[in-house]
Simulated assay, not measured.
Amino acid sequence: MRYAWMDEYCLSKVGVEKEYKLEWDATRYMIKGKMFVLLGGDKEGKPIATVKLEPGHGEFLRQQYKDIVPGYYMNKEHWNSIYLEGEVSDEIVKDMLDKSYSLVLSSLSKKLQKEVVGG
């Protein structure tokens, strides 16, 4: 599988928890219970990763790459799915993961943010 590094990369981020949801047949990466990456499949079983992005940035990436589409089974404005058998570079995928992590972390209360990053 392409992007075999993704699991390790997500888990290397501070405060990330990994959970497999049997009923979704998908793996969630979360910060304090809030998801920032969902690894699963589309209705044909093609592997996808779904991440949260600022709406304008997500729209820009969807226009640039055929393998980045509106979030599968998610809010199409804020979530974007990447086909993992596609042609999106590792650098772009890592940037998307980083941005999703930052967005979700910043959405947490200041208290929870401090619990995650320390300080």
Rank of each mutant, 00 (worst) to 15 (best):
R2E: 13
Y3E: 00
A4K: 13
M6Q: 02
M6D: 02
M6V: 11
D7F: 12
E8M: 11
E8Y: 13
Y9R: 12
Y9M: 09
C10M: 11
C10I: 04
L11H: 11
L11F: 10
K13N: 09
V14L: 14
V14K: 15
G15T: 05
G15V: 13
G15C: 09
V16T: 15
V16F: 15
V16L: 08
E17M: 00
E17H: 01
K18V: 08
K18I: 08
K18F: 04
E19H: 13
Y20E: 11
L22G: 14
L22T: 12
E23K: 05
E23V: 09
E23R: 08
W24A: 00
W24D: 02
D25W: 00
D25P: 05
T27P: 00
R28H: 13
R28A: 13
Y29K: 09
M30R: 14
K32R: 14
M35F: 06
M35R: 05
F36N: 02
F36C: 06
V37N: 12
V37S: 10
L38I: 12
L39Q: 03
G40W: 07
G41Y: 03
D42W: 07
K43V: 12
K43F: 08
K43L: 12
K43D: 15
E44N: 06
E44V: 07
G45I: 07
K46A: 01
P47G: 03
I48M: 05
A49L: 01
V51M: 10
L53N: 03
L53R: 13
L53H: 06
E54D: 15
P55S: 00
P55T: 01
P55H: 04
G56L: 13
G58S: 11
G58F: 07
G58P: 12
L61I: 00
R62E: 02
Q63M: 06
Q63H: 09
Q63K: 14
Q63I: 00
Q63D: 05
Q64M: 03
Q64L: 02
Y65G: 06
Y65L: 04
Y65A: 08
K66A: 15
D67H: 07
V69L: 04
G71S: 03
Y72P: 01
Y73D: 05
Y73S: 10
N75T: 09
K76N: 03
K76L: 00
K76G: 09
K76Y: 11
E77A: 15
H78I: 00
W79E: 01
W79K: 03
S81H: 06
S81M: 08
Y83M: 01
Y83D: 01
L84D: 00
E85R: 10
E87V: 01
E87A: 02
V88A: 02
S89R: 06
S89C: 10
D90C: 05
D90F: 07
E91G: 05
I92M: 09
V93A: 08
K94E: 15
K94Q: 13
D95C: 11
D95S: 14
M96L: 11
M96V: 02
L97G: 00
L97Q: 00
D98Y: 03
S100Y: 02
S100V: 02
S100G: 02
S102T: 14
S102G: 13
S102H: 10
L103W: 09
L103A: 10
V104T: 13
V104M: 04
V104R: 08
L105N: 09
S106E: 11
S107Q: 04
L108S: 14
L108A: 04
L108T: 07
L108K: 11
S109G: 05
K110H: 04
L112Q: 15
K114F: 09
E115N: 02
V117A: 06
V117M: 15
G119K: 15
G119M: 10
